[in-house]
Computed example of a mutant assay.
Amino acid sequence: MSLTDKEIMDGVLAEFSNLAAIPRKSNHEEAVSNFLKERALSFGCKVIQDEKFNLIIDKEAAKGCEDWPRVIVQGHMDMVCVAAEGVEYDPLTSPIKIINDGEFLRADGTSLGADDGIGVAAAMYLLQQDFNHGPIRAIFTVDEEQGMTGAKELDSKYLLDAKYLINCDSEAFDMLTLSSAGSVNIDAERRVTWHKPEHRSAYKFVVKDLHGGHSGEAINCGYANAVKVIAQAINSITKKTEIELASITSLKARNVIPSEAEFVFTSPLSNVKVFDVVVAKITDYLKAAYGNVEKNFT
């Protein structure tokens, strides 16, 4: 029996709703891995869960299709966990609250987790369907967002007996991408020594309400990086006066283009109007350099 597009989409979204109820921050995927394992077992698949909580799920070929090549569909279980300012959200315990307006899904004040929840949901839906197919293997890895440790430590034997692998971590259902991608993580540390401030006047400089976005999917969109913006502000201020830097903060995930950042400093200058010039300069710079894409910044 053939299914309509709506029936297929409803089935995939039902699987996605299951995932949204389970917190799955990178390096904390045990609960979602256990859930997917039990669910796959419930509809007759064979499941292996390795020490990293990666899942290898096998669906036997349909009758008469046993000689067809094995196809792997692959996705990752973890998600980027980000919440809007003021939203109570614990990425280790809080479920995602989905809002469906009839056209789009979004989350109530947090990231949605469609990267890669929708890919995992589509694969889980596929494993339940009855159609002519060769052996299908679903591989769900952990920690894609931060370090790829799940993929790096996956035993290669689960890949070598398949002819095709389809990575279900793209942006559109109707598009196949043939390419490879990579990333580099750099961790820098510097020992900080603290002392009592010499200057009595303290100030906070904040840039916020930039667009932000995923550093992989949106890196070519021309969005401003809030950390770079405050670095420019610090450079501008130190040309006018000596400062003591108290803090720099940008509380976002490492693979997110920062949409907000702030720094606190002390200065011998007690007249805030001196710094209004810097605020105006940074504002003009953002309008000139990013005005086509950054329309709501503060």
Rank of each mutant, 00 (worst) to 15 (best):
V278A: 11
V184Q: 15
T110S: 12
A218H: 02
N132Y: 04
E30Y: 05
V256I: 08
G75P: 09
R190G: 01
S42N: 12
G86H: 06
N34C: 09
G44R: 07
C168H: 08
S170Q: 10
I98L: 15
K204H: 08
V192I: 12
V80N: 08
T93S: 13
N132P: 04
A261G: 12
L105K: 13
Y158R: 01
E294N: 07
S236P: 04
A226I: 06
V142I: 14
M79D: 06
T266M: 08
F265W: 13
A261W: 06
A31R: 13
M79H: 07
A231H: 01
I118H: 00
H211M: 10
S180A: 15
D116I: 06
D169T: 12
A122R: 01
I118T: 14
G119N: 06
L105W: 14
N34A: 10
A138S: 13
A289L: 01
M79L: 14
K252I: 06
V274I: 09
A138Y: 12
E189H: 07
E38V: 09
G44N: 11
I230W: 01
I136G: 01
A226Q: 00
A181V: 05
D101N: 15
P268Q: 08
L159T: 04
A14K: 15
S17M: 13
N235C: 02
V73G: 09
R191T: 09
E153I: 01
A121L: 06
N220H: 07
M9C: 13
K281P: 03
L105D: 12
L160S: 13
V73T: 12
G119M: 08
K196T: 10
A202S: 15
G150N: 11
P95L: 03
Y223D: 02
L210D: 04
Y203D: 05
F53C: 15
T249A: 10
R24C: 04
K196A: 10
D58L: 00
V120K: 00
D116P: 06
S236L: 13
D108F: 09
K163V: 03
G119Y: 03
